[in-house]
């Protein structure tokens, strides 16, 4: 699995169906991307704090061209940047369930973990649902090879 920075615990939590982001133990700042050292206060201590899979759409883009993304997404699909609730404005990426024709920045979403095949590896990923648009996506199987 290829993450970015000190994000190993993020992937472990996601595989277990939980959303965790690192918070500096000294100054309380929620860091994302994950860091080893808090650039604000210099602390090396972080707690991985749990968050709800809920937030608002910060931006979105609907892809029609076949770029070679994971087959699970089909075409077209909508990629989103979601501002996570109560996380100092930190944003996570994902896709939206369905074609989401009326999606707008600021829409409320709730998320779930799905599994996606990327270059012969199964990874957990975030699938978001617009409030009032029910899901048909399959839940992430935490027994899958990660």
């Amino acid at each position: 699995m290829k993450g970015i920075g000190a994000d190993e615990a993020y992937w472990q939590a996601l595989s277990a169906g939980e959303l965790k982001l690192p918070q500096c133990s000294a100054c309380g700042k929620t860091h994302w991307p994950a860091v080893w050292r808090c650039g604000e206060c210099g602390s090396w201590e972080h707690e991985w704090k749990s968050f709800e899979f809920s937030g608002t759409i910060f931006s979105w883009a609907r892809t029609w061209h076949e770029f070679g993304a994971a087959k699970e997404f089909g075409l077209p699909y909508v990629s989103v940047v979601v501002e996570i609730d109560n996380a100092n404005g930190r944003r996570l990426l994902g896709t939206i369930a369905g074609n989401a024709e009326n999606i707008r920045i600021g829409d409320r979403v709730r998320g779930e973990v799905i599994s996606v095949n990327i270059e012969d590896e199964v990874i957990p990923a975030l699938r978001w649902h617009l409030d009032d648009k029910p899901s048909t996506a399959t839940k992430f199987n935490s027994g899958a090879t990660l």
Binding site: F67, L93, I118
Partner: peptide, 13 residues
Amino acid sequence: DHIMGAGLIAPAQ
């Protein structure tokens, strides 16, 4: 994996 898991694999996206 963060961006690939969101279907983002091209600069255009």
